[in-house]
Design a protein around this nucleic acid. Structure first.
Lengths: 197, 197
DNA sequence: CAAAAATAAACGAACGTTCTTTTATTTAAA
DNA sequence: TTTAAATAAAAGAACGTTCGTTTATTTTTG
């Protein structure tokens, strides 16, 4: 019995991400992907049921990887400020280390795929986050607010900053923006100021 | 000479947005669009050069409409808190009034089209925004910070909140989230707390 | 040799776009 | 006032291409 060449699946996954980032979901065709991965179109269908399953699987894998990296060194029982700092640094590090994957996820999250796949995506992440927030509120290290408001104030600015950083042109009319350690830290301070009692 | 039926172009544009929101850029095909708009495929090419031009034109139109609505009742010389409040309410109103268009724009902004079209998109918006921020800093109503940091802290939370509101399922594991006037106002207060000296 | 991996070639369907024709409307000569 | 030429809008059918996927076959390795 012939064994699977696991590098083939990896290559397919990576090339798919590249294609989607470069040309959007429009640009992801199975035949072009096969060519890019140096593989026959039929081979893709050994590893994935169909095009949608391919996208779904990449999405799940990426979600897990991001969650894991985000929760590294994090404990839901941590003090608020420390926990926030760990998460900010983890997220920033991941996004800057894997800009392709990050871009892919951003594209995913704003496409109709997101709602379609969300139901069966069980990231270990929401639970930890919820516990962390409730703890922090109880300890009076964080003001009382709905989870969605917390999320919006706590992390949306970070992702927007990263998007500015990764944008080639920056804001139209403004120059190129570079996100350095200091700016990151300063922005985190602002967010903490908003959220602490 | 036969006159143009202007309703045709409007219908095409609206159906295109609907299709993109429902099925993504993948799902936008010229033939399906023609059928949905009750028009011959060839007719679309009277109004638009090609598929990409169609998307580009819709994008520009939407950008202008959003900018206009966002700047309604706004003056770059306004005091910081008042200006922020006007912009928050304007943006929120627009997004909640036209969820389709908003969704279309979000999908646009995170697709490769965005960088492609950004160069020639001149929204009247950046200038007003820049002036407003510089004024506010000079008056010491706003702390000193880069424009990108300001933008990230000031508006990213708002858009994230709106996305929660419009998401059918809400955060996975949490319930459905409804954005009411009071939550909006509360969140704005938090952001102001972060940004004021 | 058995069996799964991998392929090349091919399938019908759908794609973006164009070609040809028809329809509606204006213009202006009769 | 009638009517025919002129013209752009609009339609329908078709173009060649590429799409996602499958079938039939070969290759590889336990």
């Amino acid at each position: 019995m012939r064994l699977r060449d696991e590098t083939k699946e990896r290559t397919i996954r990576e090339k798919a991400i590249e294609m989607i980032v470069r040309e959007g979901f429009d640009g992801l065709s199975m035949q072009k992907l096969a060519k890019a991965a140096g593989v026959s179109p039929a081979t893709i269908y050994i590893y994935f049921q169909d095009r949608e399953d391919l996208i779904r699987q990449i999405y799940y894998e990426e979600m897990l990887a991001m969650s894991a990296e985000t929760l590294a060194g994090f404990d839901p029982g941590m003090h608020f400020e420390e926990g926030m700092r760990v998460q900010w640094m983890n997220r920033a590090r991941y996004c800057l280390k894997y800009p392709m994957r990050m871009h892919f996820m951003e594209q995913m999250r704003h496409s109709p795929f997101h709602e379609k796949f969300q139901g069966d995506a069980r990231n270990p992440f929401s639970v930890a986050m919820k516990t962390f927030v409730l703890n922090a509120i109880e300890r009076k290290e964080l003001i009382q607010l709905p989870l969605e408001v917390y999320w919006s104030v706590a992390y949306a600015p970070l992702y927007q900053l990263i998007k500015f950083h990764q944008s080639k042109t920056g804001m139209p009319g403004w120059g190129k923006f570079v996100l350095d350690e200091k700016t990151l830290e300063k922005t985190l301070e602002l967010v903490l100021k908003a959220l602490k009692p």
